[in-house]
Design a protein around this nucleic acid. Structure first.
Ligand SMILES: NC(=O)c1ccc[n+]([C@@H]2O[C@H](COP(=O)([O-])OP(=O)(O)OC[C@H]3O[C@@H](n4cnc5c(N)ncnc54)[C@H](O)[C@@H]3O)[C@@H](O)[C@H]2O)c1
Ligand SMILES: NC(=O)c1ccc[n+]([C@@H]2O[C@H](COP(=O)([O-])OP(=O)(O)OC[C@H]3O[C@@H](n4cnc5c(N)ncnc54)[C@H](O)[C@@H]3O)[C@@H](O)[C@H]2O)c1
Lengths: 210, 210
DNA sequence: TCCATTTTGTGAACTAATTCACAAGGGTCT
DNA sequence: AGACCCTTGTGAATTAGTTCACAAAATGGA
């Protein structure tokens, strides 16, 4: 049933879920594709098409039952479980991410932090004690890590990446501005803030000349 | 010449530029679409198609002259100038961004930081003194701000956003997990880290069941 | 029960993006 | 100069993604 799901569909599913959870808290129990579309900045047809890729979750004439659809979406997105996450790089961006509660709320639990700086190794951050990057393999295995977040300088990435992949981690979120090369069964997502600014720069430059 | 440039084309142009600058430093002075494609994870045809949307920058049989193409790309992307950026929200993620040198290197200069916390207002961060969010309009105007980065809690966003737009800023980079509603001449880019993790979660859940 | 109304689910039509494939241009070697 | 590579630039073909449009439920009121 689930072949060829596009990146944009997945992104929209996350949006739908976020809105459903927001609306559920208000006490509404049903929502039409039209309403969901308005709230997420897309069209009703798109909402229905996206959902229909995974099944039939609505009632004709009525719309979608919010708790049921939310639960379906959580299952589709794999959010009906906790993901064990390791943070590699406890610098500025790494520590901001560590303290952010939004990840845990969605089921992403940071169970290990690794760094190369010996003055950081051994520090206690909440429940986590910072590990030495030399112990990467040991820590990722011991903590059954599913996902690694890379917040280290670009030049350190290739080496660390190879080790992370070698130990069997198949999901990576990368903050360094480098193109990652990984085997086909490993998924990488990039967060590239400079790229977003450059896209803004492009958009602003375009309209200016009109 | 420049109508209907897709989001993905713009993203790739940024990648091309990054690689060109990296390769230029090594002393190579020409690069084929094939090589550029390999380094950026796309195809040679895609590289040529992307570039051809803006002009003819290559030499047949030889490839692209690196400094010239880099310069063309900088102009296309609007990176042949400095952009004046204001940071709204000097919290965890905001301060990490402020200290990050990667923005300035690309011509994005943070000329103002605004916060609502009176214990932060008046603090000096490098060359910048933190302003009170109450003075938003005054500061954005006085500093000729082109782009605003929002690193404030989601619930504060709508109000601040309206004020930012009203004062004439037309580029916004948003870190809060909310859908922004803006007039058509304003461009918004979102950095949504939870969304990326959810996309990873989806990808990992898919392959697991095979 | 029947009719009016609402909204889903989904093929078909359309639009956008990518890949193919090749003629034309440019360089080099003899 | 001519033969031989190499690589661009770009229409055409293909593939992917979105929007349209409507029959098929489901509900509620007369
Ligand atoms: N700070 C930002 O706002 C920002 C924005 C965009 C991108 N980034 C990217 O994020 C990454 C981290 O940036 P930052 O500002 O947090 O840098 P930082 O210097 O504050 O932190 C990097 C951390 O990584 C550690 N480290 C270095 N090499 C390591 C290795 N081999 N193994 C383990 N740990 C290692 C360092 O000890 C340090 O603690 C960089 O690639 C940067 O380009 C940062
Ligand atoms: N920290 C992260 O890693 C992270 C990750 C993803 C998304 N985000 C998002 O980024 C935003 C900021 O997160 P954070 O972790 O830096 O939070 P934070 O609480 O550390 O910082 C928020 C800052 O905004 C200021 N602020 C609050 N209301 C304001 C207003 N109306 N005007 C001006 N300033 C105001 C606060 O005083 C504070 O300094 C949030 O929307 C969060 O969801 C953060």
């Amino acid at each position: 049933m689930r072949r060829n799901i596009s990146e944009s569909t997945v992104r929209r599913l996350s949006f739908y879920l976020r809105i459903l959870e927001k609306v559920e808290a208000v006490g509404i129990d049903t929502l039409s594709s039209e309403k969901l579309a308005q709230r997420t900045g897309t069209t009703a047809a798109q909402v229905r098409k996206d959902l229909s890729l995974f099944g039939s979750f609505g009632k004709r004439g009525l719309g979608y039952a919010i708790p049921q659809l939310a639960s379906e979406l959580r299952e589709i997105l794999g959010l009906d479980r906790t993901w064990r996450v390791a943070l590699v790089g406890g610098g500025r961006i790494g520590s901001a991410l560590f303290e952010y509660s939004g990840f845990r709320k969605r089921g992403f639990e940071i169970v290990a932090v690794l760094d190369a700086d010996s003055s950081k190794v051994g520090q206690r951050w909440g429940k986590v004690v910072l590990s030495d990057i030399a112990d990467l393999e040991k820590v990722l295995t011991a903590e059954s890590v599913d996902i690694v977040i890379l917040t280290i300088p670009a030049e350190s990435v290739p080496d660390v990446l190879d080790r992370v992949v070698a130990v069997g981690v198949r999901g990576i979120l990368n903050y360094a501005p480098v193109q990652l090369r990984v085997p086909g069964d490993v998924t990488v997502k990039d967060v590239n803030m400079v790229l977003e600014l450059e896209a803004l720069s492009f958009a602003l430059s375009q309209t200016k000349g009109e």
